[in-house]
């Protein structure tokens, strides 16, 4: 049963997943393209770190993109059929949802492995200045955590009805509108930054996305 659900997920997502997996492989290689002479000066090493850091933002963005795409494809066929087929299958609903989630999660593994291999290759081929080190496995693990966290969030949202998605958007929109109204009224309450910090900074649930994503660091 799970094999067939995995098959459908693969069929629906393969065409878009493939370029994203290639991107995951290429990203670490692109981030170390400025690595050159191992006898580099401290100033040049600093420039390399800046370059690697500037590419760092691409990791959470890529993780979010892949997760969003995978979550949407997990439910799109059922949404089109108004979930009648899935609901008429003789398995409990939670069981079906869990298998759909699992199928998507397994395919996400391809992106993680690609990024890990890309990072290993980049770390192995780049000339890293003395005093700096490559962390290919660490960045791959972090990418995996971000990817699965984003996937879980998007999967839960897309599993709901259009109305549910509307509620989520309305809450986000409502917060922004309140912020604008407060600013207009001269009340300086940083509502959006406050909520953003609570989500993204430790111990916020999305903390994994923030901070520095460094393949090469001290």
């Amino acid at each position: 049963m799970f094999r067939m659900i995995l098959f459908t997920q693969w069929k629906w997502s393969r065409l878009t997943l493939l370029p994203l997996v290639v991107t995951a492989f290429a990203l670490p290689l692109l981030s170390v393209q400025r690595a050159g002479n191992p006898q580099t000066t401290p100033w040049e090493a600093r420039q390399l770190l800046n370059s690697v850091e500037s590419w760092g933002v691409a990791y959470p963005v890529l993780a979010t993109t892949i997760a969003l795409f995978m979550a949407m494809t997990a439910w799109s066929a059922d949404h089109r059929g108004r979930h009648v087929y899935a609901l008429s299958l003789p398995i409990p609903r939670w069981h079906y949802a869990l298998q759909r989630f699992g199928a998507g999660a397994i395919l996400l593994g391809a992106a993680v492995i690609a990024l890990w291999l890309g990072a290993l290759f980049a770390a192995g081929t780049a000339s890293i200045p003395a005093g700096l080190h490559a962390y290919p496995t660490v960045i791959a693990v972090r990418f995996a955590l971000a990817l699965f966290l984003a996937y879980a969030v998007f999967f839960a949202i897309t599993a709901g009805t259009t109305r549910t998605a509307g509620y989520v958007l309305a809450i986000i929109g409502g917060i922004i509108v309140v912020q604008v109204l407060l600013e207009t009224a001269g009340v300086h309450v940083a509502l959006v930054p406050f909520i953003g910090d609570r989500l993204i900074l430790w111990p916020g649930p999305l903390e994994i996305f923030s901070g520095r994503w460094m393949l090469i660091d001290v």
Partner: peptide
């Protein structure tokens, strides 16, 4: 057999 076709049309 539902009123509207409900199967996954990409299969």
């Amino acid at each position: 057999v539902p009123e509207q076709p409900h199967l996954y049309t990409t299969l």
